[in-house]
């Protein structure tokens, strides 16, 4: 059983949550001048790292709030959770 620390509710079982992919991806503002390649990058391409990954999560069965998490994709360990809009937290320089 993995516990995830919801920034609003505290530690809860992972089955209360859902992950929705990479965080900190801003929608382009100059959409009219974007090339197909740039649109493709925004819509389809993700960093897919082996190691530290910044992700969007939602506390589906709890407070239903969105938040971000830092997860290690090999160990599946969640190193930090933080509110949407907050900067990437320092997780000790791990890669």
């Amino acid at each position: 059983m993995i516990l995830i620390n919801c920034p609003y509710c505290g530690e809860r079982d992972q089955t209360e949550f859902a992950c929705h992919g990479e965080a900190h991806i801003a929608r382009p503002t100059d959409t009219a001048s974007l090339t197909d390649e740039q649109w493709g990058d925004y819509v389809f391409f993700r960093t897919n790292p082996k190691g530290i990954h910044y992700e969007r999560w939602v506390h589906v069965h709890g407070c239903r709030r969105w938040f971000n998490a830092v997860r290690h994709t090999v160990q599946d360990e969640i190193l930090a959770t933080y509110e949407v809009g907050a900067p990437r937290p320092d997780v000790g320089g791990q890669q």
């Binding site: 079982d13 089955t15 589906v60 069965h61 709890g62 239903r64």
Partner: peptide, 10 residues
Amino acid sequence: CVQTRFGTAS
């Protein structure tokens, strides 16, 4: 009071 899961129900 906590919001959680019971079986598959919220």
